[in-house]
């Protein structure tokens, strides 16, 4: 009974955050709602295994990540959601745009968020895990089942994409 009450409290406190994480990963409100529910369902079933030494957020975020990544993998119908490291490296070599901080002056945070939402799952997921969840490269690598270096490449590509998108937006704003 006490376990149920404890879980109810955690559910109330963390639902919005878990929902936010799922929404960033899945890019859809409806999917995020379902995913958040599923996350808590899984958490409830495994609540006995949860050790209080680990922060609850870290534990539940891992469950949410796993579930969302599974969903994304299913959606792309292939396990190679995060592509090939060397191919990504080659694309990195392409001419770069100015760094994001230079664009900040005429970009609002919500433009960045919109740009993040527009990224394909391949880039959005590691970006969210790294900069929203504040996971280490090792944790991300483990979750996505790729190498640490691959994570670095994907993140760099993600930022490159963001820059490109924001630069176009910025031009439009200036004009």
């Amino acid at each position: 009974m006490a376990r149920n009450t404890a879980f109810e409290i955690l559910y109330r406190d963390y639902y919005v955050r878990v929902f936010g994480l799922c929404r960033r990963l899945l890019n859809s409100n409806e999917l995020a709602e379902d995913a958040a529910q599923e996350t808590f369902m899984r958490a409830y079933k495994n609540f006995r295994k949860y050790s209080t030494e680990q922060p609850f957020w870290q534990w539940i975020a891992t469950i949410a990540n796993n579930h969302c990544i599974d969903l994304l993998r299913k959606r792309t119908r292939t396990n190679a959601l995060f592509g090939d490291e060397s191919a990504e490296l080659e694309q990195l070599a392409a001419a770069d745009t100015p760094v994001l901080s230079d664009l900040i002056s005429f970009q609002e945070a919500d433009c960045v968020n919109r740009a993040v939402a527009n990224l394909s799952a391949k880039y959005r997921v590691p970006l969210v895990l790294a900069y929203f969840n504040q996971f280490s490269y090792d944790q991300i690598a483990e979750q996505l089942n790729i190498s640490r270096n691959h994570v670095g490449v994907l993140l760099l590509r993600a930022k490159q994409r963001l820059r490109a998108e924001l630069a176009t937006d910025g031009d439009e704003v200036v004009r």
């Binding site: 936010g20 760094v99 994001l100 945070a109 919500d110 960045v112 969210v128 900069y131």
Partner: peptide, 14 residues
């Protein structure tokens, strides 16, 4: 700066 900015932007919306 860029990394910090992304972190901030993501947290703002959250």
């Amino acid at each position: 700066d860029e990394a910090r900015f992304i972190v901030t932007a993501l947290q703002i919306e959250a």
